[in-house]
Design a protein around this nucleic acid. Structure first.
Length: 164
DNA sequence: AATACAGAATCCA
DNA sequence: TGGATTCTGTATT
């Protein structure tokens, strides 16, 4: 996987890609924190890391991070390192449109496991592709925001800028 | 083997 | 209105 780290309006963002597809997006306050998050998340998957950069993907991700608009041509891979349950959750999250939200319960129903809403929360926290897989659009069924792996402030900012 | 989580429905006071 | 109880998948201890 080709990994690079860039400054952005949320601090720093780590971008990982492989064979032309986006594999990882991590946030952090500085380069160290980004890389630590990345290592922790991918510890179980034996992946080679190179510092080569896929400029096309980096450009697409940086634009998405800064504007919230994701280039439809961006190829994303959800199938590396997650359990079956997590993969289903991420697939469901990816279909949430900008400006709209779903509850953890909604996601659970969507993946045919209506009682696993609590586990859905855990799976969201394991999302390897920040912002592009819009786990910030998953909120509590009572209307409150719920938690966020990279800090509730970022979740609030992301939701606020998408309000139609 | 037990606990802790980015949640939610239900029961009971 | 608010606390305890139960449910679920994973990681951590």
């Amino acid at each position: 996987m080709e990994v690079s780290i860039h400054p952005c309006s949320f601090g720093h963002v780590l971008i990982g890609s492989e064979t032309g597809r986006l594999m990882a997006v991590e946030l952090g306050n500085d380069v160290d924190e980004c890389y630590r998050n990345f290592i922790n998340r991918w510890a179980k998957v034996n992946k080679e890391v190179s510092s080569r950069t896929d400029h096309r993907i980096v450009d697409q991700v940086l634009q998405a991070v800064e504007t919230g608009v994701v280039d439809p041509a961006l190829q994303v891979s959800l199938y590396a390192g997650g359990t079956w349950f997590q993969t289903k959750v991420w697939e469901a999250i990816k279909t949430i449109q900008p400006g709209s939200t779903m509850s953890y319960k909604d996601i659970a129903v969507e993946i045919q496991r209506p009682d696993s809403f609590r586990a859905v929360g855990t799976a969201c926290g394991a999302n390897p592709i920040a912002i592009i897989v819009p786990c910030h659009r998953v909120v509590r069924s009572d209307g409150s925001e719920g938690g966020y792996r990279w800090g509730p402030e970022i979740k609030r900012k992301l939701l606020a800028r998408e309000q139609i």
